[in-house]
Design a protein around this nucleic acid. Sequence first.
DNA 1: CGGCGACTGAAGGGAATGGTTAAGAGGCGT
DNA 2: ACGCCTCTTAACCATTCCCTTCAGTCGCCG
Lengths: 335, 335
Amino acid sequence: MTLTQLRAFVAVARLGSVKAAAISLGISEPAVSGAVAVLRRELGDRLFVRAAGGITLTAGGRRLAAGAAEIVGLAEETRRQVRQAAADGSQLRVAATETTAEQIVPPLLEAFVRRHPDVRTTTLAVPSTALGELLLDRRADVAISPVAAEPGAVAAAPGADTLERIPFLRVQLVVVASPRHAGARPDHVDGGRLHLPVGRLSREHWLLGPGGLDPGTPGGAFLTRHGVGDADASVFPSTSAALGAAVAGDGLSLAVLHLVRDELRRGTLTVVAVPGTPVNGVLRASALPGDRRSPAASALCRFVTTPTAVRSLLTRSTGVPVDHYRPTVRVSLWS
Amino acid sequence: MTLTQLRAFVAVARLGSVKAAAISLGISEPAVSGAVAVLRRELGDRLFVRAAGGITLTAGGRRLAAGAAEIVGLAEETRRQVRQAAADGSQLRVAATETTAEQIVPPLLEAFVRRHPDVRTTTLAVPSTALGELLLDRRADVAISPVAAEPGAVAAAPGADTLERIPFLRVQLVVVASPRHAGARPDHVDGGRLHLPVGRLSREHWLLGPGGLDPGTPGGAFLTRHGVGDADASVFPSTSAALGAAVAGDGLSLAVLHLVRDELRRGTLTVVAVPGTPVNGVLRASALPGDRRSPAASALCRFVTTPTAVRSLLTRSTGVPVDHYRPTVRVSLWS
DNA sequence: CGGCGACTGAAGGGAATGGTTAAGAGGCGT
DNA sequence: ACGCCTCTTAACCATTCCCTTCAGTCGCCG
């Protein structure tokens, strides 16, 4: 499988004809046909068949078309980026778990780029198990992830000995629900507050963001430890959306205490008393050791423990200016 | 630039040594060194330099390491997917604008997979200008996007003649704010409702999700048409988060009317009367013409106009079951 | 300063890639 | 049935890739 072969196939898939692809690439038809033939042999799939008015991709051909277009485009983009690396300012890729990438990283990086305006940041949202791999593969410069505050609760991740870890903020996770939801279950209400034994957790309906059940995070570990499984949870496109559904009274959610301060004060959400909560966690930054790390990564590692950084995390996020905004990229695991 | 060369460089970057990379790849050191030398020449960058205790990547080397790991992993994953294409059920990639991908597509696809349980769906969030390209490149099977309801308001997108377009739902966009926010500006309050002339829109602070200013969407076009620019808007990680900030009284937002029904009824949000609103839009599905389209894409194109689909969009979303959930992937443009 | 380990370069060869022209095979329309 | 257009295969060649062995150079460390 060669980039040239993939380029040829992309052209065929897009234009619907070997001839047209050959013309657009400026080569002969047999060259295109040959490239496709190699792919066919190697992948064991016809990829496309001749049909009325052109060609029809097979199921495998459709997937290859999508993947090949992605690969070819990415190769081109990478080439361009390397060429311009010197001209551009430095780049900083921050990997985090889904929830952290949504709630913690944006205000943190906003404060960071305010102090280092020349740094271009990108956020990657990944399963917690992928964070170490991403750092080792140099696909990310720094990882931000929450871990259980209790020592020894989490086994060492792969490459743990080669990574530097910097804890910088304690967080508390609480179970929240709409007061109306609480009021609808008077059997456990005491003093206006809903009490819930842990044995009942898996009978409740949970409203979570993507990765809310990730067992590598303190929140996901808490839920799975108490038997909350796939059948008990609904996933929303974002943690904010899940909290919105909780406000609407659709079920329970798990939230970082200081991030729902406003909702609690306004009374649109209330904390549900559950033994074992609040779940104590610590946010920490991970990166390669100092000599194998980019300057921007080192700057962020120093920054996270500063009062400025902590303050940016404790005040409610006001969003980021449009020109600072870089979308969070979801990264797939393939290893 | 060859996949083999990229693989060699990934190993070097990860292991921090040509020798270690050669061993891990099962080839000789000169082979690795040679592969790197070709990349160096082609890209015009040292990529890495020898340093105490190993090597240090240059800025360009860091970007290449990230890109190369991505490309190599993607190639491997694509190969696997093509091989298994026959075994797996059919796949359906749905592209949409940011807001649509967050608010419209999840309930729609949830209803769709309930009827077609064998289909694996993926959602792609992209700028509106990329939707057509994605379909033509076969990177997406179906595009879901909102367009202005007024005919002729939008110029024909590239490839417009070769795509089939299926409108399926009218939507209304309204300006919303917290009632407290409204009350704080008594100069334009009339009958308890905030009225705002269009000339004042660019003086307000806007709370938007990613892509909220995308001029290819009715909402983004409305805002940019009235002078709302980068300086007037804060971007949140999701539209839900932006609405949450609006509830907190931080500014104005633009929302799909029927999706904020609950907030309006509870009084946590109120509609701001602005001339020209509600903005009328139509959701439509786009796909390649029937004979060049996958069976799953055709099924979705038929599905969107059914009462079941419309109902799924009009009732408030309850999230999707965990086992149906597939994260939304943000796709970059490189063309 | 000498030795040693690690990276780089040169030379060479086998295999593939990537291209050509020419001819065959297969579907579609008239 | 026939011709036409398109895709495929065959034969062939130049180039590049990719690996080897061997020799050289660089930097670190005792």
